[in-house]
Design a protein around this nucleic acid. Structure first.
Length: 576
RNA sequence: GGGCCGGUAGCUCAGUUAGGGAGAGCGUCCGGCUUUUAACCGGACGGUCGGGGGUUCGAAUCCCUCCCGGCCCGCCA
């Protein structure tokens, strides 16, 4: 047991290797290092704390930031954590003058272990198996994702389809990330040295790995060839030929989370490029091959593959592991992301509901907090972004928020070198939802101006930008069916009113026809109701029925005041 | 059971780096906008900072302990 010479329990990594670098006082905060401490400055933005750690190691340029994921059915928001967290660190480093390369591996030589219940199509929409060629999945259990046809029949493989989704979403968020296919790295020989190192010193690998995994015994060979006969990833290597760089194998059954994927029994030979390393080795091998300096990962890795990866990196590959960073997982409307349960949302879906800046802002919040993304309360997130933005422009009396905004806002809006000098015009999200009840763009602008949300001197571009939120807020209202989900009815709803209300509506029509503004119309509704001895609520309900075919709605008078007068008059008279 | 990370107002979250006034927005309630109708404005209500103990002149913040939640401690990734 050479691995545990230094410590009593090899599984117990030293505190300095903790991946929770944002939770601890400081990995440097030991002993008397007061001079070092004095050199540290407070950072309002977590990405700078991480950047400090990276810079302290004096990495070669370009600094390499990695993320990675095994393909699954849906590229949901949670999968974006690594890309976005890495991005903000990359930007913080670039801002300090470093060259940064951000890569993201699609770990696509991994075998498909079970058929996903939901898939995302090229448009980011989540669909069930019934809408795809599910058979192609069922027939390819155990086969690397890159060798499985795209169930949508569009991309060259299932892996390519999935990687395409991630890349498209990264583009939408304007994050320059280089997608790397693990299969290609193997096929091109990038992993040759790593595989050789692992197989050449298999005893050492077993020794290190056995501290973390029970299945590692004297027979264990840390390489999984792809069977040349059936195409499945296999586990049983019989001999290793280091000179020829080949292994012999038997295609045996594989256990996949309780299910058995049957091997074909074929006995064959594979090169180092025709298989893969097990994850616990593959991850540190990626660090080595790609020269990774920083990698964020989910908390599921924090106590599992990270400690073993550190050990493997040092004792097998002879390298230092990258700066780690654990992030907490998101929930969606209070529940864990689950594509099988249908509790997923894709970046593309979200961008139909809010601006990319707002989504980027969400990822700029502190990673150690388990955050809930609530679609129902998406207005809260947008409001928080607006406040964050106002804080950047010095309009919020909150020193902490202001300090965070001053550093993070330029990154969030993607303009660290050229931050905006004027605060954009923003419509409150729920107000935008109100405007979304009517299609007419002129109506939207008039009402927004009347309510004081658009300054008189705003230029046309600023107005257009502000009004762009209306479509998103309307999509939100429709998706959630919430209290803003009303639509102005272009045609007269079928409805009967009693005589009093009918007379009141006629009077109100005359009042509108005479030309009054929204405020006056609102007031007149009360007057009219009283004059006809109608309950005010009944009269409003009649109005909502006429215009929205509903019993409730927005403040009606102001609303009617902005609409086409003839339309309002005709509708009140139940004529059109 | 063990380890790690979280727990601050009804909700969403700042504040914990470096101990000193418990905060914001939303919601709720009340009021204002001549006028009950979800947009605007003002005010109020609202917290044992998960519980307990300790250190300290002083603790959301540091230490110990317990409770709750998530993750890991099989395999896989």
């Amino acid at each position: 047991m050479s691995a545990d010479d230094a410590s009593d329990d090899p599984a117990e990594s030293s505190p300095a290797d903790s991946p929770h670098i944002l939770s601890e006082e400081s990995a440097l905060d030991e002993g008397e290092a007061t001079d070092d401490r004095a050199g540290e400055t407070f950072h309002a933005f977590w990405a700078d704390v991480v950047a400090d750690e990276i810079v302290a190691r004096e990495p070669d340029e370009p600094v390499v930031i990695k993320g990675g994921v095994s393909p699954s059915g849906v590229a949901h928001l949670g999968n974006f954590n690594e890309i976005m967290r890495g991005y903000f660190v990359a930007e913080a480093l670039r801002d300090r003058g470093h060259e940064v390369r951000q890569v993201f591996t699609s770990d696509d030589r991994d075998p498909l272990r079970k058929v996903p219940r939901k898939l995302a199509n090229a448009d980011g929409e989540v669909v069930g198996l019934g809408e795809v060629d599910a058979g192609v999945l069922g027939r390819n259990l155990g086969v690397p994702y890159t060798s499985i046809p795209d169930p949508f029949g569009e991309s060259e493989s299932y892996a390519a389809h999935f990687a395409g989704l991630l890349k498209a979403d990264a583009d939408r968020l304007n994050v320059p990330v280089e997608m790397l296919s693990n299969t290609e790295l193997y096929a091109d020989g990038d992993f040759d040295e790593a595989v050789r190192t692992v197989l050449a010193d298999a005893d050492c690998v077993r020794e290190v790995l056995s501290e973390y995994q029970d299945k590692v015994d004297d027979e264990y060979v840390p390489f999984n060839p792809v069977c040349e006969a059936c195409g499945k990833v296999t586990e049983t290597v019989t001999t290793v030929d280091l000179d020829a760089e080949t292994v012999d194998y038997v295609c045996t059954d594989m256990d996949a989370g309780g299910n058995t994927i049957e091997g074909c029994g074929h006995e064959g030979s594979a090169t180092f490029r025709e298989g893969k390393l097990p994850w616990r080795l593959e991850w540190p091998a990626q660090w080595d091959v790609l020269g990774v300096d920083f990698e964020p990962f989910g908390k599921d890795h924090a106590e599992g593959s990270w400690p073993s990866g550190v050990d493997i990196a040092r004792n097998v590959f002879g390298e230092e592991p990258p700066v780690p960073m654990v992030y907490e997982w998101f929930t969606l409307d209070g529940e864990a992301f689950s594509s099988s349960e249908g509790n997923v949302v894709t970046v593309q879906e979200l961008l139909g509901l809010l601006e990319p800046k707002v989504l980027r802002y969400f990822f700029a919040l502190h990673p150690k907090k388990a955050r809930d993304l609530s679609i129902e309360r998406l207005d809260q997130l947008v409001d928080r972004f607006d406040r964050f933005e106002r804080a950047y422009f010095g309009e919020v009396d909150d020193p902490d928020l202001t300090a965070f905004a001053e550093r993070a806002y330029p990154f969030v809006v993607g303009r660290p070198d050229d931050p905006p000098t004027e605060r954009p015009v923003r419509l409150p999200y729920t107000f935008a939802a109100v405007l979304g009840m009517v299609d007419d763009p002129d109506f939207r602008e008039r009402l927004a101006r009347d309510e004081g949300h658009i300054p008189d001197d705003a230029d046309a571009d600023a107005v257009d930008a502000a009004l762009a939120r209306v479509e998103q807020a309307r999509n939100w209202a429709e998706r959630t069916g919430n209290e803003y989900d009303y639509r102005l009815q272009p045609d007269l709803p079928e409805i009967e009113f009693d005589d009093d209300i009918a007379a009141g509506l006629d009077d109100l029509a005359d009042f509108v026809a005479a030309g009054h503004d929204g405020e006056a119309i609102q007031a007149e509704m009360y007057e009219t109701a009283r004059a006809h001895d109608i309950e005010v609520s009944d009269f409003f309900a009649a109005g909502y029925r006429l215009f929205f075919d509903d019993t409730q709605g927005p403040r009606l008078g102001e609303f009617l005041g902005e609409l086409e007068r003839d339309y309002v008059v005709d509708r009140l008279r139940r004529e059109a």
